[in-house]
């Protein structure tokens, strides 16, 4: 017996969410607003987390909110990279005409990495270990996008 199916789309519902960031991330975003990268340090194992967090995964100890803060420089090292043709934003995702390089950057003095676009650079010039620096957005709102991306430091080779 042949099976007939119906395929339909729903057009009427979209769910909107708003995620509370918590006190540690709130302080991090406060820092971004004044162009300061903040992290916090686990007092037991001395690991530094950027962005900061309440719990050290290694020790399962709570990192006290009032101290253990570390001010970091805006430079770092490129730990990994790739390119993508899909731009993701709040509006959804779309295909771009040019490939965008993105990479994992470890801030100097931290033990974690963040993922951001790599600006003004061709894929062929990328290697692991390059020194990079934050490029701030013109408008600072206390939002992850306050960091627009990272640029390669000139004369900063391995």
């Amino acid at each position: 017996m042949t099976r007939k199916r119906i395929e339909i789309t729903t057009g009427f519902v979209q769910a909107d969410y708003n995620f509370w960031v918590g006190k540690y991330m709130d302080k991090f975003y406060d820092g971004l607003e004044s162009k300061q990268v903040l992290g916090n340090r686990c007092p037991t194992c001395n690991r530094v987390f950027v962005p900061p967090r309440k719990v050290c995964g290694n020790c399962f100890k709570t990192i006290d909110l009032s101290n253990n803060w570390v001010k970091l420089k805006d430079t770092g090292t490129l730990r990994n990279f790739t390119t993508t043709r899909i731009a993701v934003s709040e509006a959804g995702k779309k295909k771009t005409s040019e490939a965008i390089p993105i990479g994992m950057v470890q801030f100097d003095g931290s033990d974690t990495s963040v993922v951001y676009p790599l600006l003004d650079v061709q894929e062929k010039d990328l290697t692991i270990g390059l020194k990079v620096q934050v490029v701030w957005n013109d408008e600072l709102k206390g939002h992850p996008r306050d960091i627009k991306g990272f640029r390669m430091l000139k004369g900063g080779e391995r």
Binding site: M1, R3, K4, T10, Q14
Partner: peptide
């Protein structure tokens, strides 16, 4: 409780396509 920042997100339920069998319905 102290109000921290909020980050927005959305789930476009309209992007789902439901398929189902209707042979028994005809």
């Amino acid at each position: 409780y102290e109000k921290t920042r909020q980050m927005p997100g959305k789930w476009p339920l309209s992007s789902y396509r439901y398929k189902f069998n209707i042979t028994h319905f005809q």
